[in-house]
Design a protein around this nucleic acid. Structure first.
Lengths: 172, 172
DNA sequence: TTGATTGCAAAGCATTTGCATGCTA
DNA sequence: TAGCATGCAAATGCTTTGCAATCAA
């Protein structure tokens, strides 16, 4: 079922490189997990990935998925994502540029977005504080288009006008 | 030891109001927890707050602190903060305007900052996607001034020049 | 009096760790 | 062969829940 690894040649190579550099070992599990991971879209939890991997090889354990995800993160192939609920999600770069997230608190939809200006301003802010940034994390929580409409319908009567965009407060 | 509640008159009133509105009850524990909470600075975990409350009244339980912190969040008096490790921190508005965070991954220092421009751009982005934001969360991870200097010293020789600020990738 | 609140202990979750066995290099 | 990797079960750490006793309204 798994497509030939050749599809992710670069990524696989990067991984092997990292493994060698760290004095670790190349194993079937790690390769399978990475391959399955690269074929996913969006964000998935360790458990999500575990089930996907299970379909290919029922012998792989949860623990190995957890450990490998960590390894992939170290290798720069995966990125931890915290969506706000307790757990940790992961996403990869393959076919995906760097981006931030809007998360609908009603239906859980996740919108990926990117703003060059926001990036620049962040760097400027950091510089002001003598801070050297390595990562950043921007989440906007609220209602997606669909849920916002529902909200209007159920609560008071909705005027035809677009709801005003307004950030009331901050998390984090 | 606890200063008279009069100091936080407004906050206390808001809390009582919320409690009444929700058909809940005013209790000594809740008042104590809120008072102690408002006297703190920065971000503290439920457990941190628990220990502070313990000093005033050893009979108050962990659970009540957890529950009250949730209540305060609902009432708009507290704000959940996720610093990146597993746990949830809280901060209050008293004496504190809305802000975002830079977190030093070396020493854990947390710098609070605010950028009107970034706020505006976020609203603009949201509008583009028909998204109605309610909260947002921006974290910049990296090295603070002090740790960055140390880093330079221990690794290769440091040139006198300021290190370039550059965001490599995103967590979120 | 009624039903919300509390504190304890137990349960839940996601994640990590200990350890004997298995497998790369 | 040495020692990293694996998978299981047990342990952890934070947070939530069940429940009898307590307390505010």
């Amino acid at each position: 079922m798994v497509k030939p690894n050749q599809e992710f040649k670069e990524e696989m190579a990067l991984f092997q490189e990292h493994i060698k550099r760290a004095g670790l070992r190349r194993t079937a599990q790690r390769e399978l997990i990475l391959t399955v991971f690269l074929k996913t879209e969006d964000h998935l939890s360790s458990e999500d990935l575990y089930w996907l991997v299970q379909k290919e090889d029922p012998n792989v354990g949860q623990t190995t998925v957890y450990r490998t995800l960590k390894l992939l993160t170290d290798a720069g192939l995966a990125r931890e994502v915290r969506l706000g609920d307790g757990r940790t999600y992961y996403e990869h770069h393959f076919d995906h540029e760097h981006h931030d997230h809007m998360i609908c608190t009603e239906c859980g939809e996740v919108i990926e977005f990117f703003s060059e200006e926001i990036e620049m301003l962040q760097d400027q802010m950091a510089e002001q504080f003598g801070f050297t940034p390595t990562h950043h994390s921007l989440r906007i929580l609220g209602l997606c288009k669909v849920c916002d409409r529902k909200e209007l319908k159920t609560s008071s009567a909705a005027s035809g006008a677009q709801p005003r965009v307004r950030v009331k407060t901050t998390l984090n």
